[in-house]
Nucleic acid binder design. Structure first.
Length: 630
DNA sequence: ACTCCTCCTG
DNA sequence: CAGGAGGAGT
């Protein structure tokens, strides 16, 4: 089953929330009335529509003027509309009008009488600001002189507008493929969507005001607009070159407004992002619960036969547990329920967790169960958002093989596949995952590190995924490391442990074929390293000219011992029994003798040595039997 | 047929 | 350390 679809949805959603919706270069004069107070009001949406109605009204006038047209009459008309529409705004706007900034920004000029043309310029700029702020009676017409920087501002703002429009279109378009997910959307998704809408609304408002701002500029100095838009026009040659004073004034205004507005935009985006992120965090725990259920069911499936006597009783408890686990998730995902969750629902719960894990000693809540290769409850948007937040939009989430191919949800039989069967095909093992331990509610290996990782994944994707995913590593690695460490320490006592010995000394492990084979394989690997070292040091001794086998000893200072200790007792926190040194010395002697006798020419010359060594196993201390060992 | 082992490879 | 091939033992 393709899991990639929700990825796209979230991708677009996230992208639009985090990137595309971020306003870029914006005229910085709308901050307070655009972003501070209205931000809270956006939640109900009505204010937005009111503002939009006004600004749309204005925009019509702007459009009629063709934006770049130097028609003073039209400009004046639109300007009047601006006044009338804006005049209804909150009076606080006036109190904190950006014109205040202008006054302070050019304060040095106020100390001296200004020449007439400078005063005119100043009045013009202040008028612009008043118009922007919505002062109904402050409008005055300047002399039409403009500064180059102002024109550049306008052009940049227009480009910014167009850029925003382009960017806005993209996520909206991309939402289409995810419409199936939207059908299933839960409250989080709606919330995210709302936020996105709000951001879009703010952007629209911003554009409206930007255009209005530009409109004011254009009516103030149409020549610049025309020149900037269509190149120099002989008819609209620049008449008044900007003076230094004008430049400075405009620069002050420009900088102040830029700072203000960019800060406002940043705040706005932070708020939106925070909101989205918080909802994502909430869903992580939710995801855990969702994932845990299938895991339990799957692992229980493997236990059906062995735990048949407890079946009915266990089923009751399991049912309640399962429903408890599923409740919240199903409530939210019932609409997008696919076979994934039906895998959970359909499957008759056979037994309960505690009956599977009679030796469980960790009283952790069920929802802390380790990461499961969830049998894919439909990917919640927050799951994907979480993914995106962690790995970025290009990470390979869609191909996350949440289940082994043999467990393909399209196969009804997959439900009855035992965990053993899954594990037997395992390719990914615990060793691949993280370095963190995480408490597990499942004391038995049936669901912890020894078994959990034993899910076949394609081409190491899971491994790389897990390596990048601390959350996953945290969960699926539990148990594996401690069990592995324990096995290594046991190797100091026994090189050839029987299955029974292993079962005895891993009481917290619910053994099945897979687990048994795994442990046996571990010891096989231990032996392999052990014998390789033996052969290596035996040959080394021969090469060094050792003639008497009695000259070869293994002590704690020996290179050989250090190598072995490094391998089986890396942390060096375990006192290696003397008997192991003796066995190691015997083994070394065996190899020395065999090689000296050139028995190594025989392809099976090591077998005799193995036969000797396998008889040298000693008792494993009782402490190893406790599941909490290590 | 199944398990367990070694050996080899990655 | 895992996976697989191949062999030996049951």
């Amino acid at each position: 089953m393709n899991l990639s679809l929700p990825d796209q949805t979230m991708h677009s959603s996230s992208e639009s929330c985090l990137e595309d919706d971020k306003p870029e270069v914006i005229l910085p004069c709308f901050r307070r009335n655009m972003y501070e107070e209205p931000l809270a009001a956006y939640s109900n949406g009505s204010i937005i529509s009111q503002l939009l109605r006004k600004t749309i009204h204005n925009k019509r006038a702007i459009d009629d003027n063709h934006f770049y047209l130097s028609n003073s009459v039209a400009a004046a008309d639109s300007g009047q509309e601006d006044q009338s529409s804006i005049s209804s705004k909150d009076s606080t706007v006036e109190a904190i009008s950006p014109s205040d900034h202008v006054s302070t920004g050019v304060s040095p000029e106020e100390d001296h009488p200004l020449p007439d043309h400078l005063q005119a310029k100043r009045a013009r700029v202040e008028n612009i600001i008043r118009v922007m702020a919505g002062s109904p009676n402050s409008r005055q017409h300047g002399d039409g002189e403009r500064c180059d920087t102002d024109a550049r501002e306008m052009r940049e703002a227009r480009e910014s507008c167009r850029e925003n429009k382009r960017k806005q279109r993209l996520p909206q378009h991309q939402e289409k493929p995810g419409s199936s997910c939207n059908d299933n959307c839960n409250t989080k998704e709606e919330e995210c969507h709302k936020l996105k809408e709000q951001l879009h609304s703010m952007q629209r408002l911003l554009r409206q005001l930007q255009e209005k701002f530009l409109q004011v500029y254009s009516q103030e100095d149409p020549e610049f607009v025309v020149r900037e838009a269509a190149g120099a026009d002989s008819e609209h040659d620049i008449i008044g070159k900007s003076t230094d004073a004008c430049y400075i004034k405009s620069q002050n205004l420009q900088e102040t407004l830029k700072q203000e507005l960019s800060k406002a935009v940043n705040d706005c985006i932070d708020k939106v992002f925070k909101k989205v992120s918080s909802s994502t965090d909430m869903d992580i725990s939710h995801q855990q619960r969702v994932c845990s259920t299938p895991e339990i069911q799957i692992s229980l499936g493997a236990d059906r036969k062995s735990l048949a006597p407890d079946h009915s009783q266990a089923e009751e408890i399991s049912k309640s547990r399962s429903s408890e686990l599923c409740e919240s998730s199903e409530a939210q995902t019932s609409q997008d329920q696919t076979e994934a969750l039906s895998l959970v629902v359909r499957k008759p719960p056979v037994t309960q967790v505690s009956s599977v894990t009679p030796t469980v000693k960790r009283p952790y809540p069920v929802h802390q169960t380790p990461f499961q290769f969830s049998y894919a409850p439909p990917l919640h948007e927050s799951h994907i958002l979480e993914h995106l937040l962690k790995y970025g939009p290009h990470s390979n989430f869609g191909t996350l093989p949440c289940m082994p191919p043999s467990m393909d949800r399209t196969s009804p039989d997959s439900v009855d596949l035992s965990w053993d069967a899954v594990a037997m095909r395992s390719k990914v093992t615990s060793s691949h995952f993280g370095h963190h331990h995480r408490p597990s509610s499942m004391g038995a290996v049936g669901v912890d590190g020894l078994c959990l990782p034993h899910v076949k994944m394609e081409s190491g994707e899971l491994q790389s995924l897990a390596e990048r995913n601390p959350y996953m590593s945290l969960n699926i690695s539990f148990g594996s490391r401690s069990h592995l460490k324990k096995a290594k320490l046991m190797f100091f006592y026994t090189r050839y442990p029987s299955s029974n010995v292993l079962k005895t000394f891993f009481p917290d492990v619910k053994f099945n074929r897979c687990i048994t084979s795994q442990l046996i394989k571990w010891f096989s690997n231990f032996r392999e390293f052990y014998y390789i070292q033996m052969e290596k040091f035996a040959r080394q001794a021969i090469a060094e000219g050792v003639h008497d086998v009695k000259d070869i000893t293994v002590s704690r200072d020996s290179e050989l011992f250090r190598a072995l200790n490094m391998h089986y007792n890396k942390a060096n926190d375990f006192h290696v029994p003397d008997r192991f040194l003796e066995v190691a010395e015997i083994t070394l002697h065996e190899f020395y003798n065999a090689i000296s006798a050139t028995k190594d020419s025989d392809s099976s010359w090591k077998k005799a040595i193995y036969k000797v060594i396998c008889k040298l196993d000693s008792e494993i201390p009782e402490e190893f039997k406790t599941s909490s060992y290590l």
